[in-house]
Amino acid sequence: MICAICTPLSDWSGRPLRKVDRFPVEGANALWQVYRTVSRMKAVRNFIAIQLARYCPSLPAKNWIYRHVLGMKVGKNTAFALMVMVDVFFPERIKVGDNSVIGYNTTILTHEYLINEYRLGDVVIGSDVMIGANTTILPGVTIGDGAVVAAGSVVHKDVQPGTFVGGNPLRELQR
């Protein structure tokens, strides 16, 4: 499928927030049309694999599922805590570097199905990154190496390497 609108989403000043491809739809809202963009079998397989990984206490087993069943790029010694929810439709668009920690109940999305369009964007999480519990990471963002994201944050824009960010809206915090 060819993207009709391939522009980054931007804030009120025009600065790009996220790098997503935008696909307009006609008729019913985009979520009703989800199976035109991803096969039902892929969605079912991914859902089952993600649920297994969410409850799995073994970090090597989780990473094996993410790499070999879901097609994610997961670095060495990266740890996904209990209940992490990765994107069910496009998990292969997630890349996590080495030695990062993804906190309890974090959600990582690479898609957004809206009323008149759907959006897809890669999520890149660097090495030595700490993501706090209950964080939501939206499509099209990059979190740089060594960054720390406070628990309960909504990551709606790129995070520079080595910074400490948190909140909703996301902002840089003092260490």
Rank of each mutant, 00 (worst) to 15 (best):
L70M: 05
M72Y: 04
K73H: 11
G75P: 02
K76F: 12
N77T: 05
N77V: 03
N77Y: 13
T78W: 05
A79I: 14
A79E: 07
F80C: 08
A81Q: 10
L82C: 08
M83T: 09
V84T: 11
M85L: 08
V86G: 05
V86K: 00
D87C: 08
V88I: 06
V88L: 15
F90E: 12
F90S: 06
F90Y: 14
P91C: 06
E92H: 08
R93N: 11
I94S: 00
I94Y: 00
K95F: 04
G97N: 01
N99P: 05
S100W: 09
V101E: 04
I102E: 02
Y104M: 10
T110V: 09
E112T: 12
Y113K: 11
Y113P: 11
L114N: 14
I115F: 14
N116E: 15
E117V: 08
E117L: 05
E117C: 14
Y118M: 07
Y118K: 03
R119A: 10
D122C: 07
V123T: 08
V123H: 10
G126Y: 13
D128T: 03
V129G: 06
I131S: 01
I131H: 05
G132T: 06
G132K: 04
A133V: 01
N134A: 05
N134H: 15
N134W: 04
T136C: 07
I137M: 03
L138S: 00
L138W: 00
G140N: 03
G140L: 08
V141D: 00
V141T: 13
T142G: 08
I143A: 06
I143F: 08
G144A: 11
D145C: 05
G146Y: 02
G146T: 01
G146K: 00
